[in-house]
Every structure is written in C-alpha cells, then in structure tokens.
C-alpha cells in the first residue's frame, strides 16, 4: 500500500506530485497511456505561464514539470485508471493492465475532455475533416477553406494557428460577442485570413466520404444556410472528466467535482481533487498547478492525522495484486 496516488499528468497532477514527493510521500502518479502530459501537449506556445518571458512550448513545459516531479521521487506509470474504489480508509485504483494499487489518499486530477457538438454526422466524419486539435491536424488542411467553431480563447488560438496552413478560416460563433480574452480576439480580428460568422449555430456537418460543408442556422433570424468547407475544427469547450467517480463523489451543478470551500476536499474522506476537473471558471495551466498544490497540502495534512499503524502499512509500495 502507498500513502498517496495521483491520477492525471497535467499541470495539476504534476504539481501535486512535486509537493507530495518533496513531503516524502513517495507518490505514484498514473499518467494515462496515450494522453500523458494533459491538454498542453496539444498546444504550441504558452505565453502566460509565469517564469517564461519568451513563452514556452506546451509539451516542453509539461516535460519540465514531469522532470521536477520525478527529481523528488515521483513514480510515473503510463496507464489509464479504469476503476476506482474510494469509500473506506484504503482506496483502490485499477489500471488498464489489470494491476491494482492501494493508497490511503488519492488526488484526482483528470482534467477535461473536448466537448462534442452532438450532431449525427460528427462521429462518422471525425478524422475525415472533423477535428478537435489544430496542432495535431492543421497540417492536412493546406490551402483549404476551413471553419473553427467556438468563441473562447482556444477557438481564437486554433483559428490563428490554422491560418499557417489554410487559405481561409471562418470562425463560427453562436453569439455576436466573444468569450475570448482581448489579446486573443485582437489577434484573430487582425488576421486577414480569418472571417467571423456571427450568431450562427451549427445544425449539421455534411459530406459523404469527407467533410464538404456545414449547415448553419442564424440564431436571430432562424434562417438556414450552407457553408462549403474542406474541414471543421470544434473548439466549443470541455467537460470535466468525472465518469470514473460520479457515483462516488458529489458533483456540482456545472458537472465538476464538488470540493469544500477553497480546499481540494471532496465528499469522500481521503480523496482530493485538483485542476480543471474542479474548475468551471478559470481553467488555466497556472490555476490548475495552484490547485494541485492545494490538493497535495490537504492530502499531506490528512495523512499526518491518520493513526500511526495505518501509515506504517503504507510504507510498503509494492504492487498489491495483479489481474484480480
């Protein structure tokens, strides 16, 4: 049994690991098999993380966070958590490989997942012109006319990035004002390849083998039009990844994991949550990192309050069971 297991390898998970490792809690961090490093692995330049005046590439920032966590003794496992048992004093974490790990405390920092439009043809055409990741897929849209759907920072960033490849980028937004920050808006407005289509909801994605256009409905006049396109990037936000815990932890009305006040304490003793999975509002790398710190300190405090015999058991860190 371990003292602590951290689930998630974004800024929240790695920062929690840095603190927990420095507190000598020998954390095990489950990083995911194919999404290790979290959301910032899918972006280019991060300009607003303090300490990097010239900006830093997202993947590089995450590599540095991991190195910092490992330097103090964090053990990283590249696998996915498939089941959790969080009630009771001992928490059980099951991985995709079938391995099971036990710990006295768990920090849950699984971030969020791209929101889908929920249209019938979206799944069928995904990877055939519908994408959620400009840095991954932009390259394939050279000299094409494409659209980005959304009005927040990530939509502006994707649109601006995609002008490196596409000949024209429409930004389709359901309102007539943007949620994006001023600097991101201004960058998009100033880009001659970007054109905004306001007050428009996407009601359909068309194309037999690959995307050939969008059906749009004007949110003011209800008029429907077709927009011919070679590709569509969806950037309409994210939903907290709570499917592993929604029946064991209380959630908020926004769907995030509920925590007590400014702490990271969930409705289950010994279970702490951090990062975008508890944050319906700010969702930045630095706020996620800060939230990871809070979780590690809360967990440290909790572990210190446990009876000595429980903690003695948690000194041993080997695997408990395999394929049970």
């Amino acid at each position: 049994m371990r003292q602590i297991i951290i689930i998630g390898s974004g800024p929240a998970g790695f920062t929690a690991a840095i603190y927990a490792a420095r507190a000598n809690l020998k954390p095990l961090l489950i990083a995911s098999s194919v999404e290790a490093g979290g959301e910032l692995m899918n972006t280019t330049e991060v300009e607003n993380f303090p300490g990097f005046p010239d900006g830093i590439q997202g993947p590089e920032l995450m590599t540095k966070m991991q190195e910092q966590a490992e330097r103090f003794g964090t053990e990283v496992v590249y696998d996915d958590v498939t089941a959790l048992e969080l009630t009771g004093a001992t928490k059980t974490v099951t991985l995709g490989s079938g391995e099971t790990h036990e710990a006295l405390a768990v920090i849950f920092a699984t971030g969020s997942a791209y929101r889908k439009l929920g249209l019938p043809d979206e799944e069928r055409l995904s990877g055939r012109g519908v994408s959620w990741c400009a840095t991954c897929d932009g390259f394939f849209f050279k000299e094409k006319t494409i659209a980005v759907i959304g009005g927040g920072d990530s939509a502006m960033e994707e649109a601006t990035f995609l002008t490196r490849f596409a000949s024209k980028v429409y930004v389709v937004h359901r309102k007539d004002t943007l949620r994006a920050s001023k600097i991101m808006q201004e960058r998009a407005f100033a880009n001659p390849k970007i054109e905004f289509i306001w007050n428009s909801a996407v009601v359909g994605i068309t194309g037999a083998e690959a995307v050939d256009g969008l059906r749009l409905r004007n949110t003011v006049t209800a008029e429907e039009t077709s927009l011919p396109l070679g590709g569509v990037f969806v950037a309409i936000g994210n939903d907290p990844r709570t499917h592993l815990v929604h029946d064991q932890l209380d959630l908020t009305a926004e769907g995030t994991i509920a925590v007590a006040g400014r702490s990271s304490k969930t409705s289950q003793t010994g279970v702490f949550a951090a990062g975008d999975v508890i944050d319906p509002t700010y969702r930045q790398a630095v706020t996620a990192a800060a939230s990871g710190t809070v979780a590690a300190l809360d967990a440290e405090h909790y572990l210190a309050s446990l009876p000595a015999d429980l903690l003695a058991d948690a000194g041993e860190t080997e695997l408990v069971t395999v394929n049970n």
Binding site: G127, R128, D137, F139, F140, A210
Partner: peptide, 16 residues
C-alpha cells in the same frame, strides 16, 4: 506524412 505527403494525400489522411 511530412516526408511522404503524396501517400498521405492518396489515403486521405486528415488526422494523425
């Protein structure tokens, strides 16, 4: 796909 874009295009790769 960077080195061999013609094959990527032939197999209609738009996401990797």
């Amino acid at each position: 796909v960077d080195d061999f874009p013609a094959l990527a295009a032939k197999y209609q790769i738009t996401s990797i």
